[in-house]
Design a protein around this nucleic acid. Structure first.
Length: 346
DNA sequence: AACCCGGGGTT
DNA sequence: AACCCAGGGTT
């Protein structure tokens, strides 16, 4: 039996039913693929439901404000996905008459669509013969063929993309692509795969050579750097607070936060109090400063560990314009801020 | 080619 | 604390 035959027959038995598997509407497939980038289905599914409910067509999404799109995306991470999603919706409506491109090459040109997503949409929606290469496919191919080329390198991409393309079913690329990803996800799992029940265990190189737990090979990520974040949580007598939009590039672009002072080290209350005297919007003001969390909240991202303190500043009147505290949940904020807002019971 | 960009999870 | 998961864009 061919590889594709084994994969698709496994898939016909083990296929799970997800809302994006009952459609070949490019808008819906695109939405699901963007949401599921770097994201588990369990985490992404509620967001898919929310987006398709609020924005049933690409026109609805294009007409939305970016701030509303980011609010709906809140908590999912990698927020450039949401910004690109919105920009691409506008582009499709404004210059393509609301029609998504129907081929890999033109899909690839859209913001937020790279090799994987272009291949997925082109094959699933238009049955184009383009192999998908996601983490699940890398894992299955590296083990089955015993390839130890690091997957997160330029050469690794070329080697595995060529192999994926080579074994792709030219008859039914849509089904093949979904089958190989699901197989990697659920049978050829990252840790402790149950190879005894695997339909490939007679021909898998990694299984034969006891290399399953050593493949795929990946170049290690650098250690995350430590940063010290001090958020200023203003609370005025009239129940207002100050938030600001992160405009600069970097993490959380276009999301909101409390005014932030980043320090080199972990400041104690006295040190921080004296540092505040130099802070433009607050100097010369009468206020009462207290530290909300005795122990730093450490928010862990892939490349940064954010050691965070929330400083409560009670005062009579805000030094600059703010927002009513009861409106704060209307703004898109990072999970770190969201957790504080819920815990503080604003 | 190296680096950045969130958030979730397990050992 | 150290490890796992992982596409796209920028430099």
């Amino acid at each position: 039996m061919t590889t594709t035959k084994v994969l698709t027959s496994w898939y016909s038995i083990n296929k799970r039913d997800f809302p994006w598997r009952n459609t070949i509407n490019p808008y819906k497939i695109w939405l699901s693929e963007i949401i599921l980038q770097q994201t588990q289905i369990k985490q992404g599914l509620p967001y898919y439901e929310a987006f398709t409910a609020k924005y049933p067509t690409v026109f609805d999404l294009a007409n939305a404000d970016e701030s509303d799109v980011l609010k709906l995306w809140q908590g999912l991470g990698y927020y450039s996905r949401a910004r690109n999603l919105h920009a691409t919706a506008k582009h499709v409506v404004d210059t393509l008459n609301g029609q998504f491109p129907n081929n890999y090459k033109e899909l690839l040109a859209l913001n937020g669509i790279g090799d994987y997503t272009a291949s997925a949409i082109a094959s699933i929606c238009f049955n184009e013969k383009t192999a998908v290469l996601d983490g699940n496919v890398y894992r299955f191919l590296s083990r089955y063929y015993g390839i130890d080329t690091p997957i997160n390198t330029t050469i690794g991409f070329k080697v595995f993309k060529a192999l994926a393309q080579d074994i792709l079913s030219k008859k039914n690329p849509a089904e093949h692509n979904q089958a190989i990803m699901d197989f990697g996800s659920r049978q050829c799992t990252p840790t402790n795969p149950d190879c005894t029940v695997c339909p490939f265990n007679k021909s898998c190189v990694a299984f034969k050579d006891h290399l399953v737990d050593q493949l795929p090979v990946k170049i290690k990520a650098k250690k995350p750097i430590k940063k010290y974040f001090n958020f200023l949580v203003f609370v005025s007598d009239s129940r207002e607070t100050i938030i600001e939009k992160r405009e600069e590039k970097g993490i959380w672009k276009n999301l909101y936060q409390f005014p932030l002072i980043e320090t080199e080290k972990d400041p104690n209350l006295k040190e921080f109090h004296s540092q505040l005297k130099d802070y433009t919007i607050i100097k010369d003001l009468n206020y009462e400063l207290s530290l909300y969390n005795d122990v730093d909240i450490v928010h862990k991202l892939s490349h940064q560990h954010l050691h965070t303190k929330f400083w409560i500043i009670n005062l009579r009147k805000l030094p600059i314009s703010g927002i009513p505290i009861k409106k704060i949940r209307d703004f898109a904020v990072p999970v770190l801020i969201e957790n504080f807002i819920e815990d503080f019971n604003f």
